[in-house]
Every structure is written in structure tokens, then in C-alpha cells.
Amino acid sequence: MTYQDKTDTTEAQAVAAPVLELEGITVAYPRYGESDHVALDAVDLKIRRGEIVGLVGETGAGKTLLTRTVMGAIPGGGEHTSGAMRYNGTPFTDLPDDKSPVRPAKDIALIVSNPRRELNPVLTVGQQIVNVIRHHLGLSEKEARARAVDMLRAVAIPDPESRMDAWPHELSGGMAQRVVIAIALSCDPGLVISDDATSALDVTVQLQVLNLMKEMVAGSETAALIITRDIAITAHYCDRVVILYKGEVVEEAPRDAFFDRPHHPYSINLLAAFAHSPALREAWWDVPPLADGTRPACRFADRCARRQPRCVSEAPALRDCGAGRRVRCHYPVEAGT
């Protein structure tokens, strides 16, 4: 196979301390007269230096919530009830707090999904980059401006000097996305999180932006977390894949191993969405419903083609299966089964 060129470096890096370490992150939303809605349940995640990790989940999986939890901006009254977050070994809780030891944009930077809505409409592109650079790096206005122009050039924006004075509404979606990438990388962060950053782009532009992101990360030894609902992106741009379902990690594996043999039935369901044979897809997807009122212990049991009685009564734990793989399933699909 020709696509295993990255394996060696990944093993070498495994020794280094993780850039980001999430341990048992749990976020709950209190509900009136009911038990809390646990939107993220004990999520563990480690990202090592120079590594690109793909986090895949569909609507409601909690992938954006995880980003927001890391960035210290949990929306809508949710509470970070337990778990620890560490950046290069330094624990942190509330990133945007001015006293936090780990600083957003400088240490952990975010690339957002809808740049035309996230850029301030009344500030020029240049002002927005300069603001971030000046605040975090303490440069003078002139130095910050020079650095901002360099960043715009680095993300392949044509004529960066004049683009500095452009307003966000004058940019196309692809251009705005590049500006956001430039902001994210302007202070040499140790980790870049991309939250569905390319889903709103046209396919040809999406490819350009993804390639750019990969180059920038590789060139600067930055680690990256690519959060997406499109599993195809992770196949080409990530070293490791983590699958999130209803707030839980259900599978984690090195990329090539994952795509050769996904273990968790949900991972297979995700792949099936791209498959061409409707009959096979239906076999995985058409699951007889559970009896009314049953609340299965395994969160995926109601959609699982491999469901057994045990799945309804006993919640599976996230099991280590060696070679850097973990799976949360009583009956995973393993090679030869």
C-alpha cells in the first residue's frame, strides 16, 4: 500500500508529551424536572505535536460543543461538570479569561466554519489580524502590520497589502476562510482547531483550503484537530480518526487502520453513507426498532445492526484494543469476524 508513508513519524511522535490532553470531559445541560442532558460524556482526547487528528460526528454528536468547551465558550447554559484539560501539561479551564495560563489564539487557535459571519463586519481584515497579533505578541502597530501582511501572503491571498484594507463583506467565502486561517496561525499557536471550517465552501475551493491548512500545520510543527461531519476529509488530511456519537467517543484509531477495518458499527454506518450498494447500506441501516420506552444502555443500540440483548442492559466501555485503537462496543467488527 502506498499510503502508509506517515506511520514512522507518528510512532516517533508518540513519545512526546501531548499538546492537548482532554481527560473525562463531561458537559451537561440542566433540564427542568428531569435528569441533566449529558451532551459530552467523559471525552478523552490526546493530540501530540505535529499530529493532525480528525474528529468525526454528525449533528448532535457534540463536536462543536467540544470545541467550545476547550475554547471556554460553552453555549446555552451548559456546564462543564467534570474532566481536566491540559495544554503542554499546563491545566486550564477558562481560556478567554484574561488570567488563564493558556491563551486562545496564542496557544490554541480556532478556525471557524462561517468566516463571513465570524469576522467583524465593521473592521477591515488588516485591523482584525493586527488586533490579535498586537495583543498576543505585544508588537508595535507597524511590526504587527508587517506580520499580518506576511500571514496573508502565506495563506495565498493575492495582493496581500491591498487586501489588508478590505472589508469582510468584500471577500468571497474562500478568501474569508483564508483570512481566518491567517488569524489562527498568526501567533504561532501550538494547536489549531478547525471546526467544520470547509463545509460551507465549494468543492474546488475546499480542496485548496484543506491543502493550505495541511501545509501550514506541517511547516510550523503545529498540531491540529480537524472537526468535521465529512469522514472523507479525515481519510486524506488526518493521522488519527476519532468518532464521536451522542457525546461519547465510540472509536479511535490511526487513520489507515481505521479505514481498512472500522471496528464500531457506527463507524461502518458512516462509511456506508458513501458506499454505492443500497442493499448493503440498507442491511446496516435498517434496524428493527426497540420496544417502546426502552432506553438502551449503549447509546447506539437503537440504530445498531449488530445489536444483542446485552447492548440494551449493559453500557459498553471504551476498550483499548492495542495499536493505538480504542472502541466502545461489546461486539466490534474485528478482522476475521
Binding site: P96, P104, A105, K106, N131, V132, H136, I183
Partner: peptide, 8 residues
């Protein structure tokens, strides 16, 4: 929200 997450 974005400005906040940029640590401004």
C-alpha cells in the same frame, strides 16, 4: 464570540 476565542 470569535473575538473572545481569539483571546482579545
Amino acid at each position: 464570540a470569535y473575538a473572545r476565542m481569539n483571546g482579545l
